[in-house]
């Protein structure tokens, strides 16, 4: 089995493992090493051919393999590059690479509306995390942002193209989970957009999974629209007997009310299993479910579980003069 070293940490992995998967295996082996895992915006392990587009997971390969020790000339997408025996990879230990990732983050944000205060994805948004960890505190983009009209693609899904980063995950869900894809990417370049082109509902038993895989607030659950900030809800593991899917889901509750149903997400923010639309949209009554108990949510988001404060403290401690003033004291931040 090939052995790879990522940020000085060694691991042996099965043939064909990508650098990203190897890094995740390091993170799963020892939570203290989770920082070596590159961020991802478009890769999704459950979707074939995903990844490679967003460029946030790029890493520097400083040694190709024992056989061919030459370094790779350019950063590579860790999600699409297989490890070779003896490969040495730098992620957080390479300042140039971190600078490149900072650039990618900036590119993803220049046309993003930053409407987190009214976005249902806030609190579980991967772009928020990325921006927080790798972004600049000020935008250098001094032009009007690109805007699209929000549209309903069916009764249950809202598409806010303004927020989309074109990760292609929802297209791959439609391609790989359903037959008869009706939405896709139209136009090209920076006016490319996710669309049905003609007014058409995305209507099939598994379309709701597009919401779960969306890394940002581009596809949100219309049945949960503005119902609550996600951090005010209580996630509960629950299951039901479902003829279409496994019926294993998470109920996002306020009191006894089920505000939202989603798939169960792992520590990388990916659903463990895809669930059907009946479970997601039609059974918002707690009586329809067997509640297993509170879900141990690995709150990856900046606003969840003190992640924000910890990061911020470190930032304040390591920097004598913080580069942005209006942050206030850590304990006064929202979501505490």
């Amino acid at each position: 089995m090939p052995k790879v070293t990522i940020d000085t940490i060694e691991i042996e992995v099965p043939e064909g493992t990508t650098i990203l998967q190897a890094a995740r295996m390091i993170g799963e082996r020892d939570a203290a090493h989770r920082h070596v895992v590159p961020p991802t915006m478009c890769y999704y392990s459950k979707l074939k051919t995903s990844g490679g587009y967003c460029r946030t997971c790029i890493v520097k390969v400083t040694k190709g393999s024992d056989k061919d020790p030459r370094p790779m000339p350019k950063p590579v997408a860790s999600c699409r590059t297989a490890v070779m025996d003896g490969m040495v990879v730098e992620n957080t230990t390479n300042p140039e690479l971190l600078d490149a990732r900072k650039g990618v983050t900036e590119f993803l944000l220049i046309n993003h509306p930053l409407d987190c205060p009214i976005c249902d994805q806030a609190g579980e948004c991967h772009l928020q995390d990325l921006g927080y960890e790798h972004g600049l505190s000020k935008s250098r983009y001094a032009f009007e942002r690109r805007t699209f009209e929000p549209i309903d693609i069916g009764d249950t899904i809202k598409l806010h193209m303004n927020r989309c980063i074109l990760c292609y995950r929802c297209v791959k869900v439609a391609e790989q989970l359903t037959d008869g894809r009706v939405h896709g990417v139209i136009n090209r370049g920076d006016v490319a957009e996710i669309s049905t082109y003609i007014q058409e509902a995305v209507d099939n038993d598994f379309s709701g999974n597009m919401i779960d895989v969306c890394p940002v607030g581009a596809l949100t659950d219309r049945t949960f629209r503005f119902a609550s900030r996600v951090w005010y809800t209580k996630p509960m593991d629950a299951h039901r007997k479902c003829p279409t899917c496994s019926g294993r889901a998470v109920l996002w509750m306020k009191g006894n009310e089920v505000l939202r149903v989603t798939g169960r997400k792992d520590q990388w923010g990916e659903v463990e299993e895809f669930i059907c639309n009946a479970c997601r949209f039609d059974h918002k009554d707690v009586k329809h479910w067997t509640v297993e108990g509170p879900r141990q949510v690995d709150r990856h988001s900046v606003i969840g579980a003190n992640h924000y404060e910890l990061q911020l403290k470190q930032k304040l401690l390591t920097k004598a003069a913080p580069d942005s003033t209006p942050v206030g004291r850590p304990q006064e931040l929202p979501g505490a």
Partner: peptide
């Protein structure tokens, strides 16, 4: 630039 892009077209 500046104009809001229309995401869907019509067959009407």
């Amino acid at each position: 630039m500046g104009a809001t892009l229309k995401a869907v077209t019509t067959t009407e």
